[in-house]
């Protein structure tokens, strides 16, 4: 049993190779983009809308509402980034139920890539929102003595984000594998059902934590939201 889909190599040329992670990521991408294109090419603005359009609208408005609730800011700016994080992780996790499908999120490389994306996106959104000076000033607050700790905080939360998602998805797969060898019929089914919930929750947590990080970088001049965004590590 392989712990990570990275080790399943389909094609190799020199140091370049295509492993299961990349292949199934493309599958998910094709599904998402193709499905979106199929549905959105005939959108209607009538009062009566097709059910697929309704699904997409519910999804988009739901993500918007969550972003707005967590960040306290207009959702439009963050929708693409946070929404794609959520939809990609959710789809990957749910498709894992299909026999033969390997979730790309079960690879530490994928979760690391997503975490790095968030890690880069946080200062970018912060700078775009407040300017370079105001953003960098956050690192020396409340005193310049806190600079190393702030930097360590930034790094660790990115790592925790990556490992949390990887651990959850990979562990689910591993547990199913182990249980399958012990009790072949009943428990794996329960674990698969549990995996549905876990996958959805993980997608939500990853997306929302990313939003919280970005919001904490951009909300320097915004109203603080102490009730909704507890400071420090938000471990799921």
């Amino acid at each position: 049993m392989s712990i990570t889909p990275d080790s399943t190599i389909y094609w190799q040329w020199g140091f370049l190779h295509i492993n299961a992670t990349l292949a199934f990521t493309w599958v998910v991408m094709i599904l998402l983009v193709g499905g979106s294109w199929l549905i959105t090419r005939k959108l209607t603005i009538e009062a009566e809308i097709p059910r697929w359009q309704n699904l997409l609208e519910v999804l988009v408005t739901g993500i918007q509402a969550q972003i707005k609730e967590v960040s306290g800011q207009e959702a439009a700016r963050y929708l693409s980034f946070i929404g794609t994080l959520f939809i990609f992780i959710l789809t990957s996790n749910l498709l894992e139920l299909i026999p033969g499908f390997v979730a790309p999120t079960g690879s530490l490389s994928t979760t690391t890539a997503l975490a790095i994306s968030v890690f880069v996106a946080v200062p970018l959104f912060g700078i775009a929102n407040d300017g370079v000076g105001a953003y960098l000033k956050q690192y020396i607050e409340p005193t310049p003595l806190m600079l190393p700790f702030n930097i360590i905080g930034e790094l660790t939360r990115t790592i925790s984000l990556a490992i949390r998602l990887y651990g959850n998805i990979m562990s689910g797969t591993v547990i199913v594998g182990i249980l399958l060898s012990l009790t072949p019929f009943f428990f794996p089914l329960l674990m698969q059902l549990l995996g549905l919930i876990t996958g959805t929750v993980q997608a939500y947590i990853f997306a929302m934590l990313s939003m919280v990080y970005i919001a904490s970088a951009t909300s320097a001049h915004e109203q603080p939201q102490p009730d909704k965004i507890p400071k420090g590590d938000q471990n799921g």
């Binding site: 190779h17 990349l22 890539a113």
Partner: peptide, 13 residues
């Protein structure tokens, strides 16, 4: 961590 895959996944994302 396969850094090539990580890079490719960042691009993919």
């Amino acid at each position: 961590i396969d850094w090539l895959t990580v890079s490719a996944q960042i691009v993919n994302f």
